[in-house]
Amino acid sequence: MLNQVGAGVVITGTGSATPEMTLNNHHLERMVETSDEWITARTGIQERRLADAQGSLSSIATLAAQGAIAMAGIAATDLDLIILATSTPDDLFGTAGQIQHHLGASQAVAFDMTAACSGFVFGMVTAAQFIRTGAYKNVLLIGADILSRWVDWSDRGTCILFGDGAGAVVMQAGESDRFLGFELRSDGTQNSALQLAYRAQAKEIVNGVNVAQGNFQPIAMNGKEVYRFAVQKVPEVVEKALFRANLSAEQIDWLLLHQANQRILDAVAQRLNIPTEKVLSNLARYGNTSAASIPLALDEAVRQKKIHPGDIIAAAGFGAGLTWGAAIFRWGR
């Protein structure tokens, strides 16, 4: 078990939201040289949800947050802190404040954090530290991304993968401690394997003074390198988090991985000797939703009553940065 500084941490509510518009594999067949059979076999994805031209990150994130707050049985005004894990904000200066406003969470401080597809796990660990120190009692953590904004829809290597969505959890101080262990990692030497890079050109604003102005470029990925990285590093980080929690893989009720590729999910489960029936997956319907994928799958499983109070969940995120991490927790009070 983790050494407790102060209060225990409990996860008491989940929520999720996705845009209404659906793009399936047959649509993609008309856009790029690919096929439904190829996409399904290679990734496990059959369709994904996309925000339309009027869609915003703050709107789907707010809906997910409202579901989590309602399940937790608290009011928005009870929140002390809102953390938004995202790589695709509506505003580069931050979107968490907009969500705070939409929720009416007038007592909460709000900020964005970016760790790409690992963002939700990094956010859980961050929220837990605020709770353990006694600084805050009620924390709303949201993972949300609209990656369709940054996909090159002519690149068949990436456009088949990504979708849009949001998921949220409420984490609260409690007498029992249900946040059992974690491990976080980063390796910037592999940053080029998966990135959404800013590219600029020099602009002279006055004689002798040049600044850089440009735009972010579409998502670029080395699929083979990312697959190799995930299959090697994710089992290791789950095992380290389990060690910190004084648990074994056999004691896990559910393995909840970032929903990137079904082949990755299967390979990680196999390396951990976790049976398929313990692996949560909704990848076929939503694709890779980045920071939203773990809380989106968690909320669905909770509301379907697949996950029961007290179940031990090993969650792991991995992606751009490169970043990866795992968190072990029990669901519910």
Rank of each mutant, 00 (worst) to 15 (best):
Leu2Met: 15
Val5Leu: 14
Gly8Lys: 05
Val9Ile: 15
Thr18Gln: 13
Pro19Ser: 11
Met21Pro: 10
Leu23Lys: 09
Asn24Tyr: 00
Arg30Phe: 02
Arg30Leu: 14
Met31Glu: 01
Asp36Ser: 13
Thr43Ser: 11
Glu47Pro: 04
Gln54Asp: 15
Gly55Arg: 03
Ser56Glu: 02
Ser56Lys: 13
Ser58Pro: 08
Gly67Leu: 05
Ile69Asp: 02
Ile69Glu: 01
Ala70Met: 10
Ala72Thr: 01
Gly73His: 02
Ile74Trp: 00
Ala75Lys: 09
Ala76Asp: 05
Thr77Ala: 15
Leu79Glu: 03
Leu84Ile: 10
Gly94Met: 05
Gly97Glu: 09
His101Leu: 12
Gly104Gln: 06
Gly104Arg: 00
Phe111Pro: 06
Asp112Cys: 07
Ala115Met: 14
Ala116Thr: 14
Cys117Ile: 11
Cys117Thr: 12
Met124Glu: 06
Ala128Val: 07
Gln129Pro: 05
Phe130Thr: 11
Ile131Leu: 09
Ile131Pro: 07
Arg132Thr: 13
Arg132Ile: 12
Gly134His: 08
Lys137Ser: 15
Gly143Gln: 05
Ala144Trp: 04
Leu147Pro: 10
Arg149His: 02
Val151Asn: 00
Trp153Pro: 09
Arg156Glu: 01
Gly157Glu: 14
Gly163Gln: 05
Gly165Ala: 03
Gly165Asp: 04
Val169Tyr: 01
Val169Ile: 11
Val170Ser: 08
Gln172Gly: 06
Gly174Thr: 03
Glu175Ala: 13
Glu175Ser: 13
Phe179Asn: 02
Leu180Val: 02
Gly181Gln: 04
Glu183Trp: 09
Leu184Gly: 09
Arg185Ile: 07
Asp187Ile: 01
Thr189Ala: 13
Thr189Ile: 10
Thr189Arg: 15
Thr189Tyr: 08
Ser192Ala: 13
Gln195Val: 12
Gln195Ala: 13
Gln195Lys: 12
Gln195Pro: 01
Tyr198Phe: 12
Gln201Asp: 11
Ala202Val: 04
Val209Trp: 02
Asn210Trp: 03
Gly214Asp: 00
Pro218Gln: 00
Pro218Asp: 02
Ile219Gly: 05
Asn222Asp: 14
Gly223Thr: 05
Tyr227Pro: 12
Phe229Asp: 13
Lys233Thr: 11
Val234Met: 12
Val234Trp: 00
Val234Glu: 07
Val237Pro: 01
Glu239Asn: 15
Ala241Phe: 03
Ala241Gly: 08
Arg244Ile: 10
Gln251Ala: 15
Asp253Leu: 09
Leu256Cys: 14
Leu256Lys: 10
Leu257His: 07
Asn261Asp: 03
Val268Pro: 04
Val268Ile: 03
Val268Met: 05
Ala269Arg: 03
Ala269Trp: 02
Ala269Met: 01
Leu272Lys: 00
Asn273Gly: 04
Ile274Arg: 08
Glu277Asn: 10
Asn282Met: 06
Gly287Phe: 06
Thr289Val: 07
Ala292Pro: 09
Ile294Leu: 10
Lys305Phe: 11
Lys306Trp: 08
Gly310Ala: 08
Asp311Asn: 15
Ile312Gly: 02
Ala315Gln: 06
Ala316Val: 09
Ala316Cys: 13
Gly317Glu: 00
Phe318Gln: 11
Ala320Ser: 15
Gly321Asn: 08
Leu322Pro: 11
Trp324Ile: 12
Trp324Cys: 11
Gly325Asp: 06
Ile328Ser: 01
Ile328Lys: 01
Trp331Asp: 04
Trp331Asn: 01
